[in-house]
Amino acid sequence: MSKIPLQFRHNGRDVAIFVDGGTNLLVALRELIGDMTPKFGCGQGGCGTCSVLIDGELHLSCLTLAETVAGRSIETLDGMKQGPNLHPLQRAFADNFAAQCGYCTPGMLMAAKALLDRNPSPSRADVIEAISGNICRCTGYEPIINAILAAAGGRASA
């Protein structure tokens, strides 16, 4: 099978790769671009840890055909911090102990960023709705919800 040339923006940088037909975006990001921040959890859209933003919208990269993102802009957790500075959401996750094993964290952060980008002052219900496609095994969600609300409130809540 011939390879398909594919170009898109990855965290603000233009990338060009060759993919096999049927390759999903998660595999393209991890194995061809080398961005390991989107995690492989279930591979069928059930856990949310592979979440990325495509043109600002939240998507499950494991269910997205790589070739459908041609010319579009992909954001992953790898592009979240600015230089040495953590993104306010990352800082809030740390301050609120919103990670234990950390495997869900990339997906949670991307879901949270998608929310705050379109709704800077969400309610608690909005936050719950926004992360409802993401499974966390360790935290009981409460610290994650608190972290997102804290980041939205612009305060580094202790």
């Binding site: 069928q44 719950i128 993401n134 499974i135």
Partner: peptide
């Protein structure tokens, strides 16, 4: 066989503790 069938509470199912 997967997370769709192996159920766990989501963020909407938790309660105050």
């Amino acid at each position: 066989r997967d997370f769709v069938e192996y159920l766990m509470p989501g963020p909407g199912d938790i309660c105050a503790h």
